[in-house]
Design a protein around this nucleic acid. Structure first.
Length: 479
DNA sequence: ATAGGGTTAG
């Protein structure tokens, strides 16, 4: 009988209604009324936990179903086993308190040497940004297996410690496609786009293992395409187009992941026509797909189409998220549609139930600022529910320069110099604003201040950890 | 019979 339930659950794990029905069947069958809880009951609970974890549609799904099932399992008197905890930890990713108590449970019940649990714990702590805890779990594993090493590699990448990450990757005695993908994605996420592409090339040429050839899969392609999208210089577009051609040759199905990565690639390189073709070819569009398309249009002069897309998306029943609204506000800002932008911003809370984040405020400041409504932008900053950061002030600063407002520019520039004194770009812009206004005394002061604080005129932002980009060991190993 | 790691939009 148990086999039947297990196979039923596995077959229908994407269908929430069916899971509920099977769960109900399991209850009404009296299976949980037997006097002596045994291994079978534990397996039944494990399968149910897994089923609720894996179902996709979030609508009727109670988010804490796996945890509640775990509590039912305990109160029923069954014993959780080493299969129970990985799923539980996966379901607790957003709740530090629950996850750490589950960690405690595993320790108290003596599951200290289990690779699956260790691996889940590494990922759990990494998702919370508790990288030291993740590393501690890994270090305490006597013989971590491949999956645990891959999780640890991802932790090092998430810490921006790319030197250590690459060293770790090189030191691994066995690697699979997930190891390669993690490393490629790590480079990409840390701005080392060329390294990501070079490592991808090495994967293609070497394939690593003589016995079992390692080939890139969907995740690998998506990671390298993301690097290609961000790498300007035409190199990114060339490699990305090559990969796209490979998909066409092999008639590879355009999943939402692959398609979205391609739309992003062509969008970032200004090829709107390709974006639209790919968009049409994606059968199962997800919210990310729409977002990538709306962003591509909003950033390449297709503002009107972007806003139409936003409507189409909603009539297709796709629910907009924070990133959608960011793209929509960008479209309004670029098109100078101030009133419409304000309407969409207000609709965020009232219509979509989305709380505006720092980036949305930055967009609104840009919207007002570009349109020359500098004081409206300034008032908007003053009415923000939290302190504006450098991106928001930076948006206003750009508008001050655009419209030659030295008075407000000086005030905003000072704000930015306080926030990021090490970033030379602010000094330069402020100096230019002063120069255009003929305030030569201020120009001289700017130069002195910059020398005094030791700010650098570097490309890119200062908060990128220099160890990820500089002294990258990969240069010596590739090709 | 039941479990873990790597992927998209800002």
């Amino acid at each position: 009988m148990m086999h039947l339930f297990v196979s039923l659950l596995q077959k229908h794990f994407t269908e929430p209604t069916k899971i509920l029905q099977i769960h109900a069947l399991l209850i009404t069958s009296g299976f949980f009324l037997l006097p002596n809880p045994n291994q079978s009951h534990t397996i039944a609970f494990n399968c149910l936990i897994q089923s609720y974890l894996r179902q996709r549609t979030p609508k009727p799904k109670p988010p804490d179903a796996p945890l509640r099932l775990f509590l039912q399992l305990l109160s029923f008197g069954a014993q959780p086993n080493h299969h129970t905890f990985p799923s539980l930890l996966k379901s607790s990713s957003s709740s530090p308190l629950i996850g750490t108590s589950i960690h405690g449970q595993t320790l108290r019940r003596g599951f200290v040497l289990d690779d699956f649990i260790g691996c889940s714990l590494i990922k759990f702590y990494a998702q919370l940004g508790r990288f030291l805890d993740a590393k501690k779990v890994f270090d305490e594993m006597p013989h971590p297996d491949l999956a645990s090493c891959n999780a640890m590699l991802d932790v090092l990448c998430a810490c921006h410690d790319m030197g250590a990450a690459y060293k770790f990757f090189q030191s691994m005695s066995i690697r699979d496609i997930a190891s390669w993908t993690t490393m490629i994605n790590g480079f990409s996420k840390n701005g080392s786009y060329s390294s990501a592409i070079q490592l991808f090339r090495r994967l293609i040429h070497e394939g690593e293992n003589v016995f079992a050839k390692i080939r890139p899969n969907e995740a690998t392609f998506v990671s390298v395409l993301s690097a290609c999208a961000s790498l300007g210089d035409r190199e990114g577009l060339a490699v990305g187009t090559e990969i796209h051609a490979h998909f066409i040759q092999r008639q590879i199905h355009l999943t939402a992941f692959l398609g979205t990565a391609l739309i992003d690639l062509y969008g970032k390189h200004g090829h709107l026509y390709s974006c639209e073709n790919i968009f049409k070819a994606i059968i199962q569009k997800e919210v990310c797909t729409w977002n990538a398309m709306i962003s591509a249009l909003a950033c390449n002069g297709g503002e009107e189409n972007a806003l139409q897309m936003f409507d189409r998306m909603q009539s297709d029943g796709v629910v907009p998220n924070h990133i959608t609204l960011l793209a929509v506000l960008t479209a309004c800002s670029h098109a100078g549609l101030v009133d419409l932008g304000v309407q969409h911003f207000e609709a965020m809370v009232s219509k979509y139930g989305l709380t505006p984040l720092m980036k949305h405020y930055g967009c609104m400041v840009d919207l007002f600022g570009r349109a020359g409504l500098l004081h409206k932008a300034m008032n908007f900053i003053m009415q923000m529910p939290f302190e504006a950061d450098e991106s928001v002030w930076g948006a206003l600063f750009g508008s001050c320069k655009l419209h030659g407002n030295a008075e407000l520019g000086a005030y905003v520039g000072q704000k930015l110099l306080n926030l990021e004194p090490w970033y030379g770009g602010w000094y330069k812009t402020l100096r230019n604003i002063y120069a255009e206004a003929g305030r030569w005394q201020n120009v001289v002061e700017m130069r002195e201040n910059m020398n005094l604080t030791g700010a650098k005129m570097v490309a890119g932002k200062s908060y990128v950890n220099s160890t990820c980009t500089a002294g990258n060991p990969i240069q010596h190993h590739l090709i």
